[in-house]
Every structure is written in C-alpha cells, then in structure tokens.
Write a protein that binds this DNA or RNA. Structure first.
Lengths: 167, 167
DNA sequence: TATTGTTATACTCTATAACTATA
DNA sequence: TATAGTTATAGAGTATAACAATA
C-alpha cells in the first residue's frame, strides 16, 4: 500500500488549500472512505493477519440470513471469482466449511466454524477500534447522525435491492 | 464496470437485513463512497468521455496553488506514474501544457488550456448533477452537516498534511 | 434453458526499480 | 547526494468467458 501522505519538512511557500476538489462533497466522501479503508486494512493485517474483504465476507456469513456465494458477491460488490478465492482461503484456514444446500444442490451452505467466529471476534475488535479512532472527533450523537444520513442516501440501493432477492 | 446490484425478481423468503456489516459506520461510509464513485465515473464517461481521475487532476490543476506532478500525486493519492500517464493524455487532448518551472527546472508548470477549462466546466456540471442526485434525500442543511463532519474527521490528514509541504 | 460455482485467461491498474536531468 | 519526472517491467487485482453440475 502506497503512502503519499507523510509530509516532508520543506518550505511552506503557499499555505493555501482552496482546491476545488476539497469542496466537493463527493470527493470528501471518497477521500474519507479511502483513509478509513486504509486504516482498517492496515490494522487488520497487522493485528489479526486478515484483509478487509476476508473480514467483510466472514462477518456477513456469520450474521443475518444464509447467503450463497452469489448472494455475497452481490451484497459486497465483489466479483464472484474473488469470492471463490477468498472462501477457498477461509476453508484452508478452517474458518468456514462448504456444505451443499440440500434444497438446491448448486448452492453452498457456508458454515462459519467456531475457529472462524473466534477469528471474526478478534477482527471486529480491531475494526471497531480503528473506526472509533477515525470518527474520534465526532460526538456519539454526531456519529449517529452520520450513520443515519449515509443510510438514507443509500436507501433503496443497499442493502435493500440485494435483499429483495433471496436474502 | 461490473454490476452486481441489479436485482432479479424472485421469492422474498427472508426479507431481513441484519447484516453485521450494514451496521458498521465504516462500511456504510465505504459503501456510500463506492456507489457515488461508480455513479460519477459512469456519468463522466458517458457524458464527457472523461474518467474520474482525469477530472480530479484537471480540477485540481485549474484551481488553487500551482502544483507539480509530485504534489498532485500526493494530494490525490495517485501513483506518480499514473499522474504521468493521465497528464500525457491531457496533453494529447490539448487540455494541459507542460512548461518547465524556471525556478526549478526539474518541475513542470502545468498549464490548463482554455480547451481544458471548457472540458472541465462540462465535467463539473456532470459531477455536480450526479452528486446532487446522490445526496438528494438530504436537505441543504444536512448536506452542510455531512460536509462539515467529513472535513473534521479528516482534519490534519487531508488536505492539511499535503499542504504542509510546498503547496 | 437458466443458474451456481469453478477454472483459465486476459486485461487493467498499480507498484517497483532504474534512468535522466536538474538541484 | 537528493529530487522531479519518465520509462520499463512486474505484480496484484479484477473481469471475461468457458465449463460442470444442477435446476
């Protein structure tokens, strides 16, 4: 992961920051998400040797409705082939077991093992700490407001439209 | 660009959505940014044949302090080699001219041409429409709150730490 | 005939390293 | 010796398409 953020110690000839992009709400959203993603990925890898998409897939499998690999790829916007790769890895790590769905033998029932749940708990602890630190300057009430606004902005697109299906 | 969001029309056997990831503020932020990025990219390509990073670089060059390619790569978290590629393309499109900085002949002065500003204006119109539509369910006051919260969350990391340098 | 999951492959994007020129 | 920019190359990531099994 590249780091272009660490600053040098040079002359500050024009301490302005009137970048047009910095005023676009869309770019602020993009940038904030990128910074948080990097933080989460870095700490997950360092703390529990797990990458973000592994964590997200595991967390999704461990909670809520039972999902096929196809469902997961739709919900998390991951390519189906990527889901295969990550779940292969999960099986090798004995965090997940693939069992055929008796009602539709094309699908898998993805079963998170106790070891998988344990690993997930550790990862969630890390992720929660990173998020808490990232949103550190916001009050609890503000965090709730942010959560609410983001949910509303996505209403009907996520996760709703995915859930319309078999979920 | 892949689309895993368009839903089929099947049985809704479990209309729940208690995914653990959906409750993480971090994932909400990530997902919202992804959706918006996709919208912006799609409409920029379709409307003005311009990709997002081209637009971002052009918008940054056209406003604020004069930046070298190195500065741009740091500010926008783009690899320096990517910046070279995109600015090459901009030169072919006659949107930008490279001139040597007389004070430091290693650096370029990147000059946005009138044609470049015209293209930028068209792109900004598209991007603004997409953003406006994306944040459509928020009131003006809420949008300001969101902008403010995102800025505060990033305070000290962006664009400040980049600006500490030569900008 | 359509769908889930898989594999193989191609392609895009990004990162790494070496090079030129300037400082 | 260090930095800005460039080029070539390698690697990671993702998408495409063909396939097997099942519906």
């Amino acid at each position: 992961m590249a780091r272009y953020r660490t600053a040098g110690q040079e002359q500050a000839q024009r301490p302005r920051s009137d970048f047009r992009v910095a005023e676009r709400p869309g770019y602020l959203l993009h940038k904030a998400a990128m910074l948080l993603d990097e933080d989460v990925e870095k700490h997950l890898v360092a703390g529990v040797a797990m990458r973000s998409r592994y964590f997200l897939l595991l967390a999704t499998m461990a909670s809520g409705p039972e999902l096929s690999q196809k469902d997961l790829s739709q919900l998390l916007n991951l390519d189906p082939t990527t889901v295969v790769t990550v779940i292969d890895e999960m099986e090798r790590n004995q965090h997940v077991e693939r069992k055929r769905n008796p009602a539709d033998r094309r699908r898998y029932q993805l079963h998170v093992t106790p070891a998988g749940r344990k690993a997930l708990a550790a990862a969630e602890k890390v992720a929660t700490e990173v998020e808490s630190s990232f949103f550190g300057t916001l009050t609890d009430s503000e965090r709730e407001t942010l959560r609410d606004m983001l949910s509303r902005v996505m209403a009907g697109r996520w996760p709703a439209s995915v859930c319309e299906r078999s979920l």
